[in-house]
Computed example of a mutant assay.
Amino acid sequence: MLLTALAPGLAWAQAPQFPSDTVRLVVPYAAGGATDIVARAVVDKLAARWGHAIVVDNKPGAGTTLAAAQVARGAGDGHLLYMTTSAHTISGLLYKKLSYDPLKDFAPLTLIAKVPLVLVVRPTLNVKNLDEFTRYVQSNADKVSFASPGNGTAQHLTGEMFNATMKTQMVHVPYKGDAPAITDLMGGSVDAMFATLTVVLPHIASGKLKAIALANGKRIEKVPDIPTFGELGLKNFEAATWFGVLAPASLTPALRERISGDIRAVVGQPDLKARLVDLGGEVVSSTPAEFDTFMQAEFRKWQDIVKQSGAVIN
């Protein structure tokens, strides 16, 4: 009994010193975007906690798959980490040929936060709520358009999920990023968009876009007046851009728990937590097991939607 009780402590004591070198956090997007902002905020706190330098390595390209492939091949010693988004699980369904498995080749550490998607419409669209929007779309089959930052993104697939759920036929208009999509939406060239809340917060506040509903399980502190789809009768209609940290699958269980615990500790600091909330986020700070369960559920959720949309990347 005594040996059993002491075993976890002995294992911890025998674990190698960590970190023993510079830690590299790979981000699959360019500097300045939401993922990069969150990554650098976490890194600042984590470097101080560890007493070691942490370098943010921006590796954009191919819908996050270039960066993910590099991390999947890396050493699982804790010195290579990966902050990614919902694109990570979706990529496994979109790309015909990947050199890695988005679930099996990574060790989930923690889901830091989720930023829900919000249905926003052009200011000249004469609808005030979800019921009016749905009736408008249903009575204008093939005439109502919705924008997204690209084929196969969570924003695109959420629009297809709405079409499937409500038996509507909105036409998808893909753009090369959020900025041009939102510009055209505000200008009236397209009718609606399932947008990441962070990106459209200022436009909602200024009245340049009308917010209809949040694709989230509960209301968000930053915008308490925007109802959820669930409140409006569309149960389990949830979609988000999320920020989570992974490592190569070969990371040991002891290091996985250690690194996850340290990241969760800094995310829990009031100033960092407040910054994430200010971005329109819902702070999650999950355990590795909880994050693993979440990623599995995300993969299953998008599987049918990807098939229905016909989205594929060779």
Rank of each mutant, 00 (worst) to 15 (best):
K218Q: 12
P116N: 03
K96V: 10
R256T: 13
T168P: 03
I204D: 08
T196L: 07
L10D: 01
G76I: 03
S86G: 05
T85R: 06
E257F: 01
A68Q: 04
E257P: 01
D271H: 04
D178N: 15
I90T: 03
V43S: 07
K104Y: 00
T65D: 03
P8R: 01
L276A: 06
G32L: 11
P123T: 14
A53Y: 08
T252D: 12
A213Q: 11
V171S: 02
V23A: 08
A289N: 12
S189V: 11
E290M: 04
K307F: 08
Q17N: 14
L25H: 08
G244S: 14
T287E: 09
D131F: 13
A13H: 01
P174L: 03
A254E: 14
E132C: 09
E231S: 04
R49K: 14
A7L: 13
T198G: 07
N126Y: 01
R258Y: 12
K208H: 15
A179F: 06
D101W: 03
V200I: 14
L251R: 01
I263G: 07
A179W: 04
A247I: 05
P123M: 08
N163M: 02
R24P: 01
G217K: 11
V284H: 07
F243H: 13
A195L: 05
A240F: 08
D105R: 00
S285V: 07
A31L: 04
G310F: 06
Q138K: 15
G244E: 14
V306P: 07
T196R: 10
P227N: 04
G244C: 01
L255Y: 11
D304C: 00
M295W: 08
V200N: 10
P202N: 13
R40S: 12
L201N: 09
P174Y: 06
I37Q: 15
A254T: 12
K208F: 09
L98T: 06
G32R: 03
F299L: 08
T252F: 06
L93F: 12
A141M: 08
G159E: 01
A297F: 00
D225F: 08
